[in-house]
Amino acid sequence: MLDPACGDEELRLLLAQAAEGDWAALRPGLAAVEDASELTWLLSALSEVGGVEEWTAKAIADGPDDSPALLLSGARHVSWAWEARTGQRAAQVSEEQWRLFHERLEIAEEQLFEVAEREPEWLAPWYFLQISGRGASLGRDIGRYRFEAALRRRPGHLDSHRQRLQQLCAKWGGSHEEMHEFARDSMLSAPEGSPLGELVALAHLEHWLDLADGADHAYLTSRAVRSELHEAAERSVLHPAYGRPRGWQRAHNTFAMVFSLIDEPQTAHRLFQELDGVVTESPWYYLSGDPVDSYRGHRDLCAR
C-alpha cells in the first residue's frame, strides 16, 4: 500500500496528531527527535497533511517565539504551494494557480529564514529553502548556497542531495551532464553503504524521462547505464554496511523500479521482497497510472 509513514509507527502517530491539529501532543514528539536528518524527514511528511497551515497559524499567533511551529508552517507552505501549482506543465497552470503558488512560497521563504536566523544549527530550514528557492526560480547560485548550508549542518544528508539533483536537472535549467556528474561524485565521495548511491539511479530515471519513446528504453538498458546502476545499488541498498535510515523504503522503491525497467527481475525481486508491499509515491509517479498499481504490476512481473 502507499504508506506516507513508510511503516514507521512514530511517524504514523505524528501524522494523526497533525491531521487532528493537536499541536500540544505533536510538539513534544518532534522535540524528542535528536537526529537532524530524522527530524527533517518527519517534518517533510507532516508538511503534506492538509490543514496544517490553519492550526500552525494559530499556534504562531499564540506563541510568536515558537520556532518549531514556525518551521512546520514554513514547510507546509512549501508543500501547499506545490499543491496549488499541481504537477502540470507550466503552460497548463492557470494564472490563479501561479498566484497561489508564489504567494505561498513567499510566506514559506519568510518563515523559514526567520527560523534559520533563530536556530542557526538547524538543518530543516535549509532543506525546505532548497525546494522553495527552486520553485521561486531564485537562480543557481542561491540554490547552491542553500544546499551547501544544509550540508554544513548535516554532511551527507540524502534528502538535500535529492533536492540538489533536481536543481541540476535539465528541466530546471541544468543539464544531464551536470546531473550525472553530481550524482556520481556524491556517491563516490561517500563511504560504501551510504544511501547516496540512490542519486545515480534517480539521475538515470530523470534522463530516461527526457527521451522520446524507444530512445528512452534503449538508453536505460544500455550496457553503460546497467553497469552504473549495479555499481550504485551495490554501494548503497545492497551493501552489507547499508544502515537503512528512516524512510529507507524510498530508495528501495527507486532501485526496484529501475531494475524492473531494465529487465533484471532477480535484483528487482530481491528489493521488492524487502519492501514487503510498502509503496512510496516516488519514483512510481514517473509512470502513468496509480503508484500502487504500477508497483504491484512490476513486483508481480519480477516474481515470475
Rank of each mutant, 00 (worst) to 15 (best):
I60M: 15
A61E: 14
D62N: 08
D62L: 12
G63H: 11
G63D: 13
D65E: 07
D66H: 03
P68F: 02
A69F: 06
A69Y: 05
L70N: 05
S73D: 14
S73P: 00
G74Y: 11
G74A: 11
R76L: 10
R76Q: 14
H77P: 00
H77W: 01
V78E: 12
V78M: 10
S79W: 10
S79R: 14
W80T: 05
W82R: 13
W82P: 09
A84D: 07
R85P: 05
T86Q: 06
Q88Y: 08
A91C: 11
Q92Y: 02
E96Y: 01
Q97F: 02
Q97I: 03
Q97G: 09
R99M: 06
R99E: 09
L100Y: 01
F101M: 15
E103C: 13
E103R: 13
R104F: 09
E106Q: 12
I107S: 03
A108C: 06
E109I: 00
E109D: 03
Q111E: 15
Q111L: 13
F113K: 09
F113A: 07
F113D: 07
E114G: 02
V115A: 05
V115G: 01
A116P: 00
A116Q: 05
E117D: 13
E117L: 14
R118K: 10
R118N: 04
E119R: 05
E119Y: 02
P120Q: 04
E121S: 10
E121F: 06
W122F: 04
L123H: 08
L123K: 09
L123V: 04
W126V: 05
W126E: 12
Y127M: 13
F128M: 13
L129G: 00
L129Q: 04
Q130G: 03
Q130M: 07
I131T: 03
I131H: 07
I131S: 03
I131A: 07
G135V: 03
A136N: 04
A136C: 07
R140M: 11
R140A: 13
